[in-house]
Design a protein around this nucleic acid. Structure first.
Lengths: 230, 230
DNA sequence: CGTGCCTTTGAAAGAGCTCAATCCTGGTGG
DNA sequence: CCACCAGGATTGAGCTCTTTCAAAGGCACG
């Protein structure tokens, strides 16, 4: 069995809380598929504590994962895009909430069928393991960001982890989502973006679109190389 | 093949960056073991970027995992204790640095032999998957802590994730380690512990030992239930 | 009995937060 | 077609929590 699809893990798992398998063509037909679902924006997929009996694969759109504190404080742990998996948890209950940022289409697999595949298909388990390990590393990067980076370093890091076409980044999530992903407030995210614009690192034609004007500068900022210039 | 050991995952993986397998007796003899190593405190195991060709299992003592920014800022991503695994990363290079907090004894397995086991031993891969998934969830809890909890909530959470015997917690790591794990400074950790002592939640006979006087209170604080009493 | 490291405590400064007002922008209905 | 409206985004001013800078304590080790 060949390992073709594995390399794409590096490129797709930008947000650290999900997985890109690329298994669709190879094993997808072996899985009982409930149905392809189409959901509007702002739709709940499942809540923290729900019984975890499904594995989802995102086909298009963006899904948001988060955890809440009793008083409503929210930490977004990841954003999922096409190709990423959701609900791999072998434990009985979901440990986070998932809802849609944009319109989303996704496939739901039966969890027990998925589990059977792990034992039956050689190499499948190892690939899943590679995926979760990779997510774990992304999670550690996020811990470094949350625990030790300044607001501008966080925002710069965030922009660079979004996929860019010709240096133009699509930002479908709200400032509130970004804030809750970076451990900041809406106002600080907004102010920081304004600051990056004033400093010539980015342009903001509309709030949902960022143009990277100085990628090197952003990268230095994101990696904390600039000491305290910002 | 029975699944006896899996339940211990819940109890041992308190720090989110490692794994408890409990495989020693079952498959340990199938793995080529370099040697059991004994290391003093403060010894480097490997650095970020090193070639990852080994899997370690901690037998005793405590190992610290961390990532660094270029200017020296540090984020501790986890502390490992007896039974936990290290170096499961299937990627070529280590993504964090590991060194010893206390004296440590550990076993080093050859990575390729470990990989072979994944394919050869039924259920092994699935158990590893359970372990890494569990770590991933712990990592998400840590993100919530780092991004959204106050200093006292962080410290309370930290104390409660350490194993306690008769409400007495052993704290082998320094205040600096705790600070870098919680995204705080040494001074804030120290002040917060003093505050918890003054408020009657804990006692501090010596800096390395914490006695829990009001577990309920600590738990409320840790989960963010108290609103802004602290 | 120094010496060095860890911890604790104090005072001042600052990064990011809170509160509050204004500005967009896209959808709605007259 | 355009005024209106609602939700998100931006900006401003003041404040707070945490950090920074500085100085003692305390303990282990030589």
């Amino acid at each position: 069995m060949h390992m073709r699809a594995v390399s794409s893990v590096q490129d797709n798992d930008r947000f650290g809380a999900a997985a890109c398998l690329g298994f669709g063509r190879e094993v997808g037909h072996m899985l009982p598929v409930n149905a392809i679902q189409h959901l509007p924006a702002g739709e709940l997929l499942f809540s923290e504590g729900d019984k975890a009996d499904s594995v989802f694969e995102v086909l298009s759109g963006m899904v948001r994962l988060y955890k809440l504190l009793p008083d409503g404080r929210r930490q977004v742990t990841g954003f999922l895009t096409a190709g990423q998996l959701l609900g791999l948890a072998p434990e009985g209950a979901c440990v986070f909430t998932a809802d849609t940022v944009t319109e989303v289409s996704l496939v739901r697999y039966k969890r027990d069928a998925f589990d059977r595949l792990i034992d039956d298909v050689p190499g499948f388990a190892r690939r899943l393991l590679a995926v979760t390990s990779h997510e774990l590393h992304a999670a550690q990067d996020q811990m470094l960001l949350l625990g030790r980076k300044s607001a501008s370093e966080k925002v710069a890091s965030f922009l660079l982890m979004l996929p860019a076409r010709l240096n133009v980044i699509d930002v479908p999530m709200t400032r509130g989502d970004i804030a809750d992903y970076l451990g900041l407030t809406v106002e600080t995210v907004s102010r920081t973006l304004t600051r990056l614009r004033q400093d010539g690192l980015i342009a903001l034609p509309v709030p949902t679109r960022v143009q990277v004007l100085d990628r090197k500068g952003l990268e230095n900022l994101a990696s904390g190389d600039l000491g305290d210039l910002f």
